[in-house]
Design a protein around this nucleic acid. Structure first.
Lengths: 123, 123
DNA sequence: TCTCCTTAGTATCCATTGGAAACCATGTTT
DNA sequence: AAACATGGTTTCCAATGGATACTAAGGAGA
């Protein structure tokens, strides 16, 4: 069985989506939201070195795609909570697989990079 | 059980790896190589609209990370074949999950985007 | 022979993106 | 009054991305 969409085709909207998902920050945010709703500055503190601009932009895109909801509570100062939608949750599982793969296979990759660089320097 | 690495930490090398994997083109290339070795120009034709520069750069990074091998055959003109390493194959499965997710959930995302944009225009 | 085609890239240029830092409004605490 | 919290936007510069043209080596066709 085949899908109606094909990521290998330019013009295919999946390209736009893949472009969105294949983003370091988007993956980390989705991963981080899996445990439940999180506030803006909380995300900012958890995901080290993400800038406010990029966090804000990325959340806006994820909200537009229907992966994340944004809820404002009229406290003082205002509280804004981000949470996964059901659709977002299905993606977060896939995203988690990627981040876990990275954590899991880090040693092999570092070793390969060292060997590659050494071989290059030798020439 | 916990890993020795944590993607949420800056300084953690997994950040660099996630940065590499969280790339539209890298995912598409890994996905494409799952079926077996493929030549440079074949990849270029298959992955529509990828530029030669980006394809070349991405393959080089994947090779450095030990995910892809590059084999040169002294034919005329020269043939260069790219293939997944065993490590690369484990990642390709995860990458495939992402591209398939995109193909599978495209309609829901397009609908969400349309609703979001309509609500924005209304205001 | 001259020109075009193939291979797998590199080189160059410009536009878009990314990140660092400053700034904003609002209101509480010190 | 000054500092801190909230959740952002704005500004600026450096880095990245993509389009295009170019390279070298050799084969095929005119």
């Amino acid at each position: 069985m085949r899908y109606a969409y094909d990521v290998y085709e330019d013009r295919c909207p999946t390209r736009l989506v893949l472009d969105r998902l294949a983003d370091k920050w988007a993956l980390l945010i989705l991963d981080r939201l899996e445990g439940g709703p999180v506030r803006f500055n909380h995300l900012r503190r958890d995901i080290k070195l993400i800038s406010q601009k990029v966090l804000s932009q990325t959340l806006k895109k994820l909200e537009r795609d229907g992966l994340v909801t944004r809820t404002v509570y009229p406290t003082v100062p205002v509280t804004v909570e981000y949470a996964l939608t059901p659709l977002g949750r299905t993606l977060a599982e896939t995203a988690a697989a990627l981040t876990h793969w990275a954590e899991h296979n880090m040693d092999a990759i570092l070793a390969s990079q060292a060997a590659y660089d050494a071989a290059l320097a030798e020439r």
